[in-house]
Amino acid sequence: MAAAAEPDLVTRRVRVRGLVQGVGYRYACVQRAEALGLAGWVRNRIDGSVEALLQGPPAQVDRMCEWMRTGVPGARVDRLLAQDVPPPAGRIDGFAQQPTA
């Protein structure tokens, strides 16, 4: 991550609860985020939720959050919590799937 925030980027931490593990949700998140040109990461949480850090233009981050409300066939999203990370968040390069935390 770089030290300075960029004004045309937002960074948002998202937590998704429901049936979102074991259904290809993280893999699909990576594919969707890359298609939208977003940076960040996604990972499973020990409590059964999925957590993501999204960074990109505000409209693209909003589109990703909307997609995450339904996700993939076989997933059931009960709740999505999204919180903007205040500047300076620093620039993130690429989008990756991370190990469970």
Rank of each mutant, 00 (worst) to 15 (best):
D8N: 13
T11L: 15
Y27P: 00
C65P: 00
D62E: 12
N44S: 09
Y27T: 10
D47K: 07
I92E: 09
P87H: 04
L9N: 02
P88T: 01
L38K: 12
P88N: 05
D62L: 06
E66W: 13
A3S: 13
R76N: 13
A89K: 00
P86N: 01
G22I: 06
G18W: 05
R79E: 13
E6H: 15
G37A: 12
A3R: 15
G94Q: 08
D8A: 12
Q60P: 07
A75N: 02
T11I: 01
Q55I: 09
C29Q: 07
Q60M: 14
R79V: 00
S49Y: 10
V50F: 00
C65T: 11
Q55W: 12
V16F: 06
E51S: 11
P58H: 06
R76K: 15
R32G: 00
V85Y: 13
M64G: 04
A33G: 13
D84N: 09
V50C: 08
L53A: 05
G48M: 09
V72M: 04
Q83V: 10
R32F: 02
V42R: 11
E66G: 11
L81N: 12
V14L: 13
L19E: 08
Q98K: 12
F95V: 02
Y25Q: 03
V10W: 07
V30R: 15
V42Q: 08
S49V: 00
M64L: 08
A39Q: 05
G22E: 02
N44Q: 10
E6P: 10
L80V: 13
R12N: 05
G22S: 09
V72Y: 03
G48D: 00
M68G: 01
A35F: 05
W41G: 09
Q55H: 09
P86Y: 14
C29L: 10
W41D: 00
D47Y: 12
W67T: 02
V23E: 06
